[in-house]
Structures are given as structure tokens and as C-alpha cells.
Design a protein around this nucleic acid. Sequence first.
DNA 1: GCGACAG
DNA 2: ATCTTGTCGC
Length: 268
Amino acid sequence: MDPVHPDFVPDASLDREEMEALQREIAAQAIFEDDFDFDPGRVRADRETGQQALDATSDGTTDGDAPVVVGVDQAFLDDDRAVSALVALQDGVVIERTHAVAQTEIPYIPGLLSFREGGAILAGFRELTVEPDLAFFDGSGRIHFREAGLATHVGVTLDLPSIGVAKNLLCGRPVASTDGLAEGERVDIEADGDVTAPDGTVVGYAVQSRQYDSPNRYVNPLIVSPGHRVGAATAADLVLSCSAGYKLPEPTRLADKYADDLKSELGD
DNA sequence: GCGACAG
DNA sequence: ATCTTGTCGC
């Protein structure tokens, strides 16, 4: 698939002020509430685990009408080459994988990640032949200084429902401790002075997608935020329904592994 | 000036 | 993100 908004495609040759101005423009176009056609109840992680595997749909056939969810992740081959890896799943089955290599024009700068990795990601989407309903990105969406993190930038550019799944908090303020949550629990992340949204706006959640039973070992929660056309609560719900016994939701976990494999194959 | 900062 | 073996715990 190709960008619906070519003018939003991340351009690494812009200066910092121009990048930030583009982000504000993108945030203004972003929709941080549910606005999609698929049935979120029909999104599932895999066919082996979870309550859903026990119901009538687990008859061994793949539901060709189920939503297509794509996981996206990147790895770096050198200092100036990034590879994006995309894995598309439908009804818990991998139906397509694509990848693309692109030059990294700028270094990592907190708040400007999409200008470093966005080019490779859009190139990966260009190779995708299936029509995705939803995408998970590794990084923030609305939890961003200008409410335009990687997931929002790419989601708006493609006009594709998207969710940001990060391992660390970029900005914002958890309303309670995010330590020792039970599996399935979540804690609101509110906008603070670092975020352009009105103070107190729930811009995402810390989501405990996995946790050990006993008290000696801990798993840190994921930081989930809306990218585009998905509300914060639904974003957290979808991450949990795509989780299958691992910290990362399946689309992201599989894209992660694919990116690692590509790095080995294409690396130096 | 100081601190904070996805991947 | 990336550099990397063993190792603690279930």
C-alpha cells in the first residue's frame, strides 16, 4: 500500500523546526478515537492459546474475513542502513511478510524517531500486497511531545488504524505506580506539561501483557498509545487480545524476530 | 541552568 | 537500537 498523504511522508532533510511543524500538522489530522470498520472482537493473537481458541471458531480453518493485523519493527544493518520488517496476520495466522532496506539519514533523536525510521517503514508497506486493517508499531503514538510519535506519523500518512507499542515511556505521567501489575491490568498515562494535549488527557496506558505468577520475577509493562483512528482504551484492549503468553503482542513479536533474521542475512 | 528523552 | 555469556528462577 502507498501513502494517502504524500505530503506527510517523513523527510529527513528538513531541519528540526520544520520536522516539529510537520508533526503538529499530523497531530491535527490524527484521530485518537475508534474510527475503523473491522470488528475488534475478531482480532486474535494465535490459534493455540487464549479463551478464543476454545470457542466455535477454532475449527482449524482460517477466517478469511477476519481483520488483518500487521506488526512492524526495524533493525539496523550498519550505521546508515535500516531494515523494516512487516508481518501480517489474519485470524492468528501469518499471511504475508515483507521487508525493505533504506538509508538512515539522521541519528536517533527523542521525539523525531519517525524521521529516522519512517522511510524504511513506508518502503516496507509499499511491498505489502494484502490490505491491512490495523498496524502495531514499535514506539509511541499519541504519547509524544507533539502527539505525533512514530505510530501516529505512519498511521496518518497511510490513513491506517495504528497503535504504538513501546517498552519505555517517552513522556507523560502515569496516574499510579506501574510496578507489579497483574497480567491484564493497565494504568492511565496522562498528558503533563511535556505534552501538547490538555493536562490530564489520557494519552495512553501502561499495559501488563504478561506477568509471572510468583513475586520474585517481574515483567515491565508495555506503554501503549493510539496511533491513528483508535482510542486509547481500545488500543490497550487490542494489544491484550493479540498477546499470547509473551510480553509483546504476536504481530510485534513476529516482526521483531523477522527483523533479527533479516539483520543476520543482510547484515555487513 | 538543570533534567528528561520511544528506537 | 546495539555490543553479548552466563546465569538466576520457574
